[in-house]
Amino acid sequence: MSSTNQTPVTGTAIVKRGLADMLRGGVIMDVVNPEQAKIAEDAGAVAVMALERVPADIRRDGGVARMSDPLMIQEIQAAVTIPVMAKARIGHFAEAQILEALDVDYIDESEVLTPADEEHHIDKWAFTVPFVCGATNLGEALRRISEGACMIRSKGEAGTGNVVEAVRHLRTINTQIRRLHSADANELYALAKDLQAPLALVQEVAAIGKLPVPLFCAGGISTPADASLVLQLGAEAVFVGSGIFKSEDPTRMAQAIVEATTHFEDPSVVAKVSTGLGSAMKGWETASLEQRLAERGW
C-alpha cells in the first residue's frame, strides 16, 4: 500500500484486539435497560453488556436463555456513548450475525446463555465485529483464540456473587502460561497435546509469557475487594454482571468497583471506596448450585 492510496482495512486482528486493549483497566457492566446503562456510564464503566436478564435472574428463572431483543440493544446504544456489547449463545452464529448487523461493539459468545451447539463454537474469524469468550483453563482459552476470539475472560460462575470460580480459572490459566513460558521448545509438542490447543498458539504463549489477546475476569465479582483481587491475580479488566444492580446501592457500588479497578494496587483507596457501601448481592455458595454455567462450552 502506498501513502497516496490510503485504503482502509476493517476487521483486522489488530483492530479487533485493539478495542479490548482500550478497555484495559476498566469495568464492563451488565445492564438490562437504558436507565441502568446511564447509571453505568455515569459511574465510569468502559462498556456495557446489554442483556435481558442478569445472570442471577437467568439462574433463578431457568428456561432457555437467548440473545436479547434487538430493540432493547438499540435503546441502550442510543442511551450511552461507551461501547455496547451483547451476548450470543455458544455456537449460534445466526444470533451473532444479528448482533453484528446491529453494530454492537463486541459479541460475547457466552455460557451464560443456553448453548445452541454442543460441538462447535462460532467461527469468529468470519466476523468483522470482535468476540470475547469465556475460559476455565489455558487450553480452552487457546481453542477460543484459534476460532478467532480477540479477548478471553475467565468464566467464573456467573450470577452467584461468588468470586471463587473466577479465581480458580485465573490462577489455572496463569499457572499454565508460566509452565509454557519456562518449558523447553521440544516440550511444547506434548504440552500442546495435553492442553488440546494448536501448537502455533502454544509456541506463541511460550515465547511471550502471556495470552496473545487481553485476559479479563468475569463471573462472581461483587465488591471492590473482588475487583482488586482478580486484578492482582493478573486480570486486565473486569466484567461485573449481577454484582452491581443486585446490590443495595447500585450507583455507589458501580463507582466503587470502577475506582478499585484503577487503584487495585493501593489498599487505602480500595478501603475508602468499600466503606459504608451497603450490602453486596446476596450470592450463592457454588457447592449448592444445581447448574454450573462454566461447564458449558469446551
Binding site: 501513502s3 483486522t12 483492530v15 478495542l19 470482535p130
Partner: peptide, 17 residues
C-alpha cells in the same frame, strides 16, 4: 467528534503519512 469514524465495526487500519 467522538466515534467520528464510526462504531467498532468501522474501526480500521490505514497507512498515514
Amino acid at each position: 467528534r467522538r466515534n467520528g469514524y464510526g462504531r467498532q465495526i468501522a474501526s480500521f487500519e490505514s497507512p498515514v503519512e
